[in-house]
């Protein structure tokens, strides 16, 4: 029997069987990362580089994009992939630096709750968005709203 605990002894016992979630998390970071490079660079190209860049972004601009199924899917994928990618990264960082078990639990719970709420909110916005809300100033809306 050794007197000194071996370094890097896991606080929880060695996992025996079951799904290897850490492995799938590792794979997710790489798989989502590759897709996000395409999605976010495309997002930045259209919103920040082409045309008037950030100056062109207003309700009518977003209304025009989110009335197109192509951009709905694009933004929806970006929302889910990026937020889960970010939340999993934050989980890694919390596990690295939060040595107090209570603090760690609170931080991990905060990450999980905020992720669930923001994914639900974002998905709701993308799927229920009306680019031509009734009673709104027509000057603030996309040009195709006049035809309605």
């Amino acid at each position: 029997m050794s007197l000194i605990e071996a370094p890097r002894t896991p606080t929880r016992g060695r996992r025996t069987g079951g799904i290897n979630w850490e492995k799938w998390g590792w794979i997710y970071m790489r798989a989502s990362g590759v897709v996000l490079v395409v999605l976010i660079f495309g997002h930045l190209l259209v919103n920040m580089f082409l045309g008037e860049g950030v100056k062109a972004i207003d309700f009518a601009f977003v209304g025009g994009k989110l009335s197109d199924p192509f951009w709905q899917v694009w933004d929806g994928l970006m929302l889910w992939l990026a937020l889960i990618h970010g939340a999993n990264g934050m989980r890694t960082i919390v596990n690295d630096y939060a040595t107090n078990p209570k603090v760690r639990t609170v931080l991990l719970a905060g990450i999980a709750v905020s992720t669930i709420i923001l994914i639900a909110l974002g998905t709701l916005v993308i799927t229920t968005f009306d680019p031509c809300p009734a009673g709104a100033d027509p000057a603030l809306l996309a040009s195709f709203c006049e035809a309605l």
Partner: peptide, 15 residues
């Protein structure tokens, strides 16, 4: 995500 969600509130709020 929060600022973009304002498009669901009103055009004025988002702008």
């Amino acid at each position: 995500i929060l600022d973009t969600a304002l498009v669901r509130v009103s055009p004025d709020a988002y702008n």
